[in-house]
Design a protein around this nucleic acid. Structure first.
Lengths: 191, 191
DNA sequence: ACGTGAGACTTAGAAAATCTCGGTCTACTG
DNA sequence: CAGTAGACCGAGATTTTCTAAGTCTCACGT
């Protein structure tokens, strides 16, 4: 099973340039320079062996092939975006589910985090557990543990309570290690 | 208009690994090493903020999220492949359409290329014209011209007849410059 | 219990793809 | 006839991706 798919960056550049009929405008949208878009599109055309645009001095025009390609590409992008958004909502505004090791649950600041106003936007639920597997299965986003894990590929951050190193570790999937939610939880603990 | 799409290489690695439930097998299919697939998938998981696989020492298992993501990704890949194949059939086995400058049409080897057996698999049609625009509009794949073009971004190759430089140039879109079809046409002329 | 093999992981360094920047060209515009 | 806008090119820098070599865990057979 093998697919014939051109470079995604090339397709993105094509799609944006075709919508704007301008490399410059497309570049602004994509956050790169116009030269980069020009090169991407050229590479794409080379890999396909056809021309997608007619370059006129006053701007771009789609060729027949380019015009035929564009809607299909856009639809595929939509489908990928929807699927991605469905399986992994953008981190912005997402609330984490947090597990707390039974060994640390009683050592925490009183009522933490249930009654912490500042954490409310970042934590969806809290559960008492020390099962690292729950992270790998995406049932939990992060864990507060009393001991270092041995699962090397998890991200682990030691916490200081009142400025003193405590046997307390914030453990997440690497993908969540540096997000705002994680930072907020850690700060709330250390302050 | 902006899409949220993870890296295409990451998605390809995920798709192949999910089908085989093995990074090693996926790597073989993709023609890279297993380490590369592992890294691609990890990057993808980080960018999404979720885990797609459970790594067991004896192999892979899809997480619930991974299993949900896979069919959507496959469908999108199918759609892109179909669209690409429709607009630009793979170069393998494709025949080029060739334009011949009226100024050179009579100087060519007798009957060329109509009665050339060796060119038959590579040339679909021949037309007498010197209009470079036909290349940009994909109506022609290549041109035999009597003079250099001034369209810098076209690929241009000087032809020698009987070992002597002639006023004869093979002009194509860059994407077709080095394909077998082009080489065959040039060789047939120079021999 | 102890090798052995398979499969995944990590890391450093190499290789490739991509971006930026500066300069050029062409066609519009006042 | 400048001046401007948009696209192109090439060189060099930067970022991404790949490879290679070594480690770890588990299953299996002796």
């Amino acid at each position: 099973m093998t697919y014939r798919i051109p470079s995604l960056n090339g397709l993105k550049a094509f799609e944006a340039a075709a919508r704007h009929l301008s490399f410059k405008a497309a570049a602004a949208e994509l956050g790169v320079t116009a030269g980069a878009v020009s090169q991407q599109v050229k590479r794409l055309e080379m890999s396909l062996g056809i021309s997608l645009f007619r370059r006129l001095p006053q701007g771009l025009l789609l060729t027949r092939e380019g015009a035929a390609y564009l809607p299909d590409v856009s639809r595929a992008f939509d489908a990928l975006t929807d699927a991605t958004e469905a399986v992994a909502p953008a981190l912005n505004g997402r609330k984490l589910s947090l597990g707390v090791d039974p060994l640390v649950a009683d050592r925490l600041p009183n009522g933490w985090p249930r009654h912490s106003k500042e954490l409310e936007p970042y934590v969806r639920e809290t559960r008492v557990t020390d099962d690292v597997e729950l992270i790998w299965s995406n049932e939990l986003d992060a864990l507060l543990l009393a001991a270092k894990t041995r699962h090397g590929s998890l991200s682990e951050r030691a916490i200081c309570l009142n400025g003193i190193a405590a046997a307390l570790y914030f453990v997440t999937r690497p993908g969540l290690a540096e997000c705002r939610q994680s930072r907020a939880i850690i700060e709330s603990l250390e302050s």
